[in-house]
Design a binder for these strands. Structure first.
Lengths: 113, 113
DNA sequence: CCTTTATAGTCCTTGATTGGAATATAACTG
DNA sequence: CAGTTATATTCCAATCAAGGACTATAAAGG
């Protein structure tokens, strides 16, 4: 049951790049902009979205704003994934059976011969 | 490294509802529309997005199109999550230390007295 | 064939998102 | 206080996603 804002935040590839970068440790806005090849305003805006999704925390150090990743929302995503996980895990055979029942994606029901 | 289309597909709450429904088994477009409170055209369109993201397979039965969930892309999402998982898992203490170093989110560096 | 049922596609409008450019703010420095 | 550095915000144009209404297609049935 992740916050809808989390999904929206992760929908953008730039933002995913940002949190991937933050996985390596805290970074300032400037560093993030440079590493992710974003303009400074763009970086600021994306970070705002990430902050509002709870993915990122900010701490002020002099004029800089150091951003750190907060993985809690990702844990929520992990929970969301849980019920699906069993579909490709243990009972992969059951799924296989379901999918194998499909004659073809685009053909009519009748066999092709 | 999930397909960008996967993130986009999951970003919509209606589509998440659809795949949650499909977790319970195959469904026709009409059923999906009704259960998820979508108009028929809307359901068709959302299903198209899910299909293009590889999350859903379709099989034709007479005039109906029976949709089944394909969890493979979700497994990719699971993989994507892997490097983050350690952040709230084992070394949760290390993260705690990082976050505790933060004086406050909005205050200046100098103590308030 | 004509009709019914089930679904897909098109057109249009609307609201949200994104990026760029320029500006504003805020904190340190001399 | 003036200047500099770091970041945020605002404004704007362009693109995009989503819903509604309508139409089109496709299969089945009489």
């Amino acid at each position: 049951m992740p916050d809808p804002a989390l999904w929206a935040a992760l929908a953008d590839p730039h933002r995913r790049a940002v949190i991937a970068l933050l996985r390596t440790g805290p970074h300032t806005v400037g560093e993030i902009a440079q590493e992710c090849e974003l303009s400074q305003p763009s970086a600021s805006k994306h970070l705002k979205v990430l902050r509002e999704a709870g993915l990122v925390r900010v701490r002020q150090e002099a004029q800089r704003r150091v951003h750190t990743l907060d993985p809690a929302p990702l844990a929520a995503l992990d929970d969301w994934l849980a019920p699906y996980r069993k579909l490709w895990g243990e009972s992969l055979d059951a799924l296989g059976r379901r999918l194998d029942a499909r004659p073809d994606t685009t053909e009519p029901t009748t066999p092709k011969d």
